[in-house]
Each structure stands twice: as structure tokens, then as C-alpha cells.
Nucleic acid binder design. Structure first.
Lengths: 214, 214
DNA sequence: CCTACCGATCGGTAGG
DNA sequence: CCTACCGATCGGTAGG
């Protein structure tokens, strides 16, 4: 098969051409901006981070981020969207790895453990930014993120409802979900990996606290 | 007894003269500034609130807040200090009202209920500002607030330890405290008094979730 | 992507 | 407390 024939073997790619080297480069630079923004937004907050800070952290000059993003707020939205998309994928993966026969308590434990990874593990700036910089989004952006967040949290409800029915969760599942996410999300404020607790410890303690079974 | 004799009957007030009308006025205006700042800091965040906003909300012109406070950051510190001082007093009062014979579960319930009042009740802007604008303090200010916060949270430990010993709290008390404050503090993000839950409902659900006893 | 720039806003101050 | 102001910084843009 000659190289010249290759294009013909991909008839379905109309309107979505294979990325050229420049396009790949551009999307890489864009991703660098998003990662730098996530780190700075988490460390200093959205308002206290200037677009010049972000440009500098990505090795660019002050005006260049606006070649990739329309506004500072669009950058914030990209951080949150990328973060939620990745978190949703890895959460689904964690549930699949558990298998369909796992009990409700094991499922909740896996969801908690995975959530700590997303909040406190390596490359974990995206979701804390989403949690703590919500206010700086426009209403339209907020809707988009809320939909992704709702989907992420909805995956917890079957386990919570089952535990409630079994008497192991002693609060209304919908309220329990809000309290539990509060408890977990707050760890972003105090947890340090240089402290005595591993993420496994944290997950074990949390599961014990909420479900009252050792 | 003549009016002239009155000063002699108060020999202990050296260096702390009774407040004049102007001094009372000044301290009132100062308190108005702090309350306006608390409201705006909570609604828009510290960085997104200008000193002009605060001045306007207190009925002053742009430069006037700096007659009462050295800097914007000093205003933030005042919000947090006033809030913590008040919260500490009312928490101690809530515990006293409960009496010394109350069980650990009742004590935890009262602490939770009181904390919701502080977070979500009327005039409840001060503590949420402390929780969510921590980052904008100078390190020295942070130490001062941390001390007040530690004292407030330390009052929870006897109840948590007792419940842990009795088997009703299935996490290490120190870790449980962090998770519990996370769950409670997060309500500032989602609770609405126009929703179906009262603060009493909230406290009941939380106590059930953490201690696993109806 | 860089360079050079603009208009707006901000915290804070002097002088009364 | 007000008036009038300053220097600094910021998000964003034009033009290449």
C-alpha cells in the first residue's frame, strides 16, 4: 500500500482534518497555559492572579495568552472544564475497576478514595479551583460546569441510597451527599502530604465516620 | 451626693476614660464599616471588593475608610476578629445553657446547631468571610485568627472523644473534627433558607450522619 | 506569538 | 470625615 493511498482509507474525516504539526504545537501550548493557570489560581486565587503571571509561568509575554483565550475568565472556564472532564473519566474508570458485584460500602469507599486523588493527588489543581473560584465564572459558564458537577456527584447516589436502606447511613441520602462532599472538599484546605495521614488513611477514616461500620 | 463627687468614686478608670459622645459615634461608624465590609467580602470576595464599594455601602466617600483603618487588609482582619470573638462567646453561652450534665451526643448536637446559626443565621457574614478569605491575610494576621479558631474548635474535642470511646463516632476524634467542620462549613456554599430544610433539620441530619444513632 | 500601548480601576495619601 | 490626587497594576487590543 502506497503512502499516497492513505488519505483515501480515511473517508470519514471530512471537516475534522488530522492535526498538523503546528496545530499539535498550538494545542500543547494551550494546555501549558491551562496547567499554569490552574496552579496559580489555586495558589493565589483567580482575582489575585494576573494574566501576566500566567503568561510568565508558561514562558510567554504578557499579551500572548489572549491569542489562545478570549479572556481571563475563558481561561478559568477551561481549567474547570478540563478538570471536570478528567475527573469524570477517572471516576467512571474507578467504578469499572471495582466490578459490578461490589457492595454499596465498597463502592462508596472507592468513590471517596478516588475523590481524594482528584483533590489532593498529583496534578490536583483543577478541581480545587473549580470548588473555590466558582464565583468568578459568568452565569452561562456556571451552568456548563454545574452540569458536569451534577453528573459527577450523581454517580454517588446509588451507593448512598443502598446504604441508607440498609441502615448504615443515618441521614437522607441527598443531604448526606452534600455533607459528605463538604467534608471531603474541605480537605483541600488542611491536608498536607507531609503530615501523618496518607490518602488511604483519609479514605478509611471518612468511610468510617459516615457509615459507622469498621 | 453631688455630681462633682462622681469622678472620685471611680478611681480605677485611670488611662481608660469613659467614652465621649464623639468616641461612641466613631466606634459606631467603625462598626458600620466592618459590617458593610463583611457583607461585601462574603458576596463578592475580598479581591473583588474595592474600598470604594465599602465606603459607599457605609455612606462615606472613597478615602474615608482609611480614617478608621490603616489598610484594606486591616478591615478584613477586623471582620474576622469581630466574627470569631462573637462566635466564641455565643458558643460558650450555648454550652452553658445546656448544663453540665448533658451527654456527649447532646453536647455535639448543640455545638452543631450553634455553628449553623453562626454560618447561616442572621448577621452571618463574618465567619464565612473568615473561612473563605483566609488567603488574603498577612502571615501575622493569620496567626491571630488561627488562635481564636483553634480555641473555638477545641471546645468540640471533649464531646468527640467521649463519643469515640463509646463507639458512636467511628473515626479518630482529631480527624473527625476536621471532616465534621468541613461538612458544616461547606453548607455556606449551598444552603438556602428558601429551601426545604431549617437549621434544626440540618443539625439533626448532620448529627445522625456523624454519630450513627437516631 | 511579541511589542507597544490604552483606558479603567485600585489602594492609599496629603491637606484640610 | 471630604476633596483631589498619585503611582501602580490590570485586562485587553492593534498591528505585525
Amino acid at each position: 500500500m502506497s503512502l499516497a493511498a492513505a488519505p483515501l482509507s480515511l473517508p470519514a474525516r471530512r471537516g475534522r482534518p488530522r492535526k498538523s504539526a503546528e496545530e499539535r504545537d498550538e494545542s500543547l501550548r494551550r494546555a501549558e497555559l491551562v496547567r499554569a493557570a490552574a496552579r496559580l489560581f489555586r495558589a493565589k486565587g483567580f482575582d489575585a492572579t494576573s494574566t501576566r503571571d500566567i503568561a510568565g509561568a508558561a514562558g510567554m509575554h504578557s499579551g500572548s495568552p489572549f491569542y489562545y483565550f478570549d479572556s481571563k475568565s475563558a481561561l478559568l472556564y477551561a481549567v474547570m472544564c478540563d478538570g471536570m472532564a478528567q475527573a469524570g473519566r477517572s471516576q467512571a474508570q474507578a467504578l469499572r475497576a471495582l466490578g459490578p458485584r461490589a457492595g454499596a460500602r465498597a463502592r462508596l469507599g472507592a468513590l471517596i478514595r478516588h475523590h481524594f486523588e482528584v483533590l489532593l493527588g498529583p496534578d490536583s489543581d483543577f478541581i480545587p479551583v473549580m470548588l473555590y473560584e466558582w464565583r468568578s465564572l459568568t452565569p452561562a459558564q456556571r451552568e456548563g460546569i454545574a452540569a458536569q458537577k451534577d453528573a459527577y456527584e450523581a454517580a454517588w447516589m446509588p451507593a448512598l441510597k443502598a446504604l441508607h436502606r440498609a441502615g448504615a447511613l443515618r441521614a437522607q441520602p441527598a443531604v448526606a451527599r452534600l455533607f459528605i462532599f463538604g467534608a471531603l472538599n474541605w480537605t483541600a484546605q488542611w491536608y498536607s502530604e507531609r503530615g501523618p495521614l496518607t490518602l488511604d488513611d483519609l479514605a478509611r477514616q471518612a468511610l468510617g465516620l459516615f457509615t459507622g461500620e469498621a
